[in-house]
Structure formats: C-alpha cells, structure tokens
C-alpha cells in the first residue's frame, strides 16, 4: 500500500470500528428493552450498524489486498488496534444514556454522512448514501425520545441530565482531525469533521433549550480513540465479542 492507500485503509477501519462497537452496544438491549416494541426497534438500529461495519471492513480488506476478511479485521485485533471514536464504546448504562448517545451520534452522522456522499471515492459515497438514510430514520426516533424523557417525569429528566453530563466530554472527539485524515479531505475522499462542530453544537443546544436543558461547550475533550487509546470498557467488550474466534483460532463458523 502506498501512503494514500494506507490512509484510506485506516480511515475505513476507523469507520468500521465506530459502527461495529456501537452495534455491539445496541444489541445488548435485545430482550432488555422497556417494552417489546422498543426492544424490536433498538435491534433494527443495531442491525443497521452491523451492516455498515461490514461494508467498511470489506472495502478496507480489499484496499489492503492481503486476503484478510471483514471478520479478520473485526475479531483478530486487540483494543490498541481498534480505532473507534470513544463515544461509541461507552456501556449502554440506562435507557436515557443510550438514547442521548444515540441522539448525539444521529445528529452527527446525518451531517457527516450527507457530506461523505460527495466523496470522490465512489464506493465510500455509495456506503454513505445508504447509511445516511438509516441515520435520518434513527434521528427521527431518538429526537422525540429525548423530548419525552426530558419533559416526562422528574426521574426521567434527572436521568437525561446525568447522561448529558457523562457524555459531555466524549463529544469533542467527534470533531478532532488527525493529519492523515486531513490529507484525505484534501484528496476529496474524507469529510472535514472539524467543520461540523459548530452546526452540531447549535442543533443540540437549540433542541435541548426547548426542554430547558443545557449542554455546555465542552473544553475538556477526552480523545484517543482513533489512536487506539480507549476507555477500560472496550477491552471487556472485545473479550466478549472475540471469544469464539480467539479460543478456536482460524476456524470457519
């Protein structure tokens, strides 16, 4: 791989990691939802993200050209090699936390993927075109949930506030770019995430203000996901997720 291919590979794996990690978290709700309809709905979102992860990994494996599969990438790397943005890996916590996180990433992906549809790389543009439709639907679901929980009972509001505080410091990383990713932006392949922050802040703050909630411009940003520096939660997720592949190496399932 030349440098540009290396960057592209890294880029695709990062997006695949974001999706695979969030899908894993969402799938943890299966049989644990607050009622059956919501349980089923959350699984659908998890399935969207698994699909997304597979598309990014498959393309990454092709770019790399070493004969690795999507599963090799998902199941045979350890936590220092995973490069997802940290917000995706945080445990599901309670329903409020899951929904606030979802709302945050939905708003983010709606804009991010919309711009990624313009990528000069046709394959990436096609994946983005499919994924953006999913995210628009996800947002249509998560937004009213935040409204209902914010204005429902005292308890639900308190839980939403707690989730906002907990997520506060993990949002900034969505908008931090590395040099190699900037090179991809210049090549017309990637999206400049830095430029999305102002719009995101405005959208979120306006929405929350309507329910009398505040979300601060966070100065403190926890970062490191794209460089493989994670929270402690990821390792446990991977030991669960990769269990079969690690115990029985090299087999077909």
């Amino acid at each position: 791989m030349n440098v540009e291919q290396q960057n592209l590979f890294r880029f695709l794996v990062g997006l695949g990691d974001d999706a695979v990690v969030l899908s894993h978290r969402l799938s943890e709700w299966c049989s644990n939802g607050p009622y059956l309809e919501e349980d089923i709905a959350l699984s659908n979102i998890a399935l969207d993200y698994i699909g997304r992860a597979r598309m990014f990994y498959q393309y990454a494996a092709e770019i790399e050209g070493k004969g690795r599969t999507e599963d090799d990438i998902a199941y045979l790397r350890d936590e220092r090699q995973f490069t997802n943005l940290l917000i995706h890996e945080l445990p599901i916590n309670d329903f409020a936390f899951t929904m606030v996180r979802q709302f945050f990433v939905d708003v983010y992906y709606c804009e991010y993927l919309k711009q990624l549809c313009e990528s000069k790389d046709e394959r990436i543009a096609a994946i983005a075109a499919k994924a953006v439709k999913e995210s628009r639907y996800h947002l249509k679901r998560s937004e009213p949930w935040i409204r209902q929980l914010s204005e429902g009972t005292e308890e639900s509001r308190r839980r939403i506030q707690a989730a906002l505080v907990e997520l506060e410091n993990f949002v900034g990383e969505l908008f931090i770019m590395s040099d190699w990713e900037k090179e991809l932006v210049e090549a017309g392949i990637a999206v400049d995430r830095e430029k999305l922050q102002a719009g995101w802040d405005q959208y979120i703050q306006k929405f929350l203000a309507e329910s009398d909630l505040e979300f601060p411009d966070s100065q403190l940003q926890i970062r490191g996901g794209r460089d493989g520096i994670h929270t402690e939660h990821l390792g446990h997720m991977l030991s669960d997720m990769q269990y079969v592949q690690r115990v029985y190496p090299g087999l077909e399932w």
Partner: peptide
C-alpha cells in the same frame, strides 16, 4: 455478543428480534 462472525451476529440478532 459472542457470535463468531459479523454475518452470524446479524443473522442471530435478526432472529432473536
């Protein structure tokens, strides 16, 4: 959570759903 491949995981989740 322990499905051995991404395809199997999608299938199983869809099934349980």
């Amino acid at each position: 959570s322990r499905s051995p491949s991404l395809r199997r995981k999608a299938v199983l989740l869809a099934k349980v759903q």
